[in-house]
């Protein structure tokens, strides 16, 4: 075999390996979408159909009826988490990047360590604390809890982004007589737009996809996010697979939309984040 032939074979083997990897990676997503159009009879037939078998919209009818309110709930939680993350993280990240304070090392260390804390540890305590201050089964309670995923990460990513902003800009604003707040609001925020969008998208998806805090902090039936709604389709003896699939397909829409729409921002934001070094 000549050298050229060998390298050509090798390249095709690489493509083959990639195809196999992608099939394995994408199959569960494919299965959700196909499964969401299958009838209950097909899903419980005891045979797995690799291709759509007898397409129906029944599952979507069921889910739209049962989960519309839950989708709204999840949107509120997602947007709330994004807003909280921005309000808390943006000014903090700016201060940690642009003002030289003695506490910076302490705060940044605390944020790094906070990322390590398992959610179940927080959920157990927060449930009892929230019970005491009447935040159990409320939006603010859930949003504060969901913020624990996004806020430490957001501060660290935004801080890395603010490092990349030249100090001349803020310095010039100060010389022109702008207050610290004006400088932050009029100069820094507009320049940080892409990083802010990245952080907001990330926080939204955390709030949207959260399950553990929804399971623990919402102990009633009044506020039910989609993740919790899907979980209720899981029965002791029989699971409503059609509804699980259709609701699952719904649940991945925001992430898909955001990946497509905001990809440019996410890419630039995360590149900024990687400058951390």
């Amino acid at each position: 075999m000549t050298r050229l032939q060998r390298s050509r074979t090798l390249r095709w083997l690489c493509t083959l390996a990639t195809v196999v990897a992608l099939v394995i990676v994408l199959f569960p997503v494919y299965a959700v979408i196909v499964g969401s159009f299958e009838s209950t009879e097909t899903l419980f037939s005891g045979t797995y159909y690799w291709l759509p078998h007898a397409a129906t919209l029944d599952n979507y009818r069921t889910v739209i009826q049962a989960q519309s309110g839950n989708v709204l709930t999840s949107l509120i939680v997602g947007v709330g988490t994004a807003v909280l993350a921005l309000v808390v993280a943006v000014p903090a990240a700016y201060a940690l990047a642009k003002y030289r304070l003695r506490v910076t090392v302490v705060i940044v260390s605390a944020l790094l360590v906070a990322q390590i804390v398992p959610s179940i540890v927080l959920a157990t305590s927060l449930f009892v604390i929230f019970h005491w201050i009447h935040l159990v089964n409320t939006y603010p309670g859930l949003i504060i809890a969901d913020g624990t995923y996004a806020i430490p990460f957001s501060i660290l990513v935004l801080r890395a982004f603010f490092f990349s902003l030249p100090n001349d800009l803020t310095q010039a604003a100060r010389v022109d007589g702008a207050s610290e707040w004006q400088t932050f609001q009029r100069i820094v925020i507009p320049l940080a737009r892409s990083a802010l969008i990245t952080v907001a998208v990330f926080a939204f998806l955390n709030g949207w996809g959260d399950f553990i805090f929804a399971l623990t902090i919402l102990n009633g039936a009044t506020i039910v996010p989609v993740t919790l709604g899907i979980y209720t389709y899981l029965g002791n003896y029989s699971t409503q697979w059609g509804a699980v699939m259709a609701a699952g397909a719904f649940a991945m829409v925001p992430a898909a939309v955001m990946l497509v729409v905001a990809q440019r921002y996410i890419a630039s934001g995360l590149t900024a984040g990687s400058v951390v070094g």
């Binding site: 990897a21 992608l22 990676v25 994408l26 569960p28 997503v29 299965a31 959700v32 499964g35 949207w208 996809g209 959260d210 399950f211 989609v226 993740t227 899907i230 979980y231 899981l234 699971t239 697979w241 699980v244 699939m245 609701a247 699952g248 649940a251 991945m252 992430a255 898909a256 990946l259």
Partner: peptide, 19 residues
């Protein structure tokens, strides 16, 4: 395409694997 698994909320991933 390798990041597609991140589209699904974890609870959905778990249920799909169960299926």
């Amino acid at each position: 395409l390798i990041i597609v698994p991140w589209l699904l909320p974890l609870i959905v991933t778990g249920l799909i694997f169960r299926f």
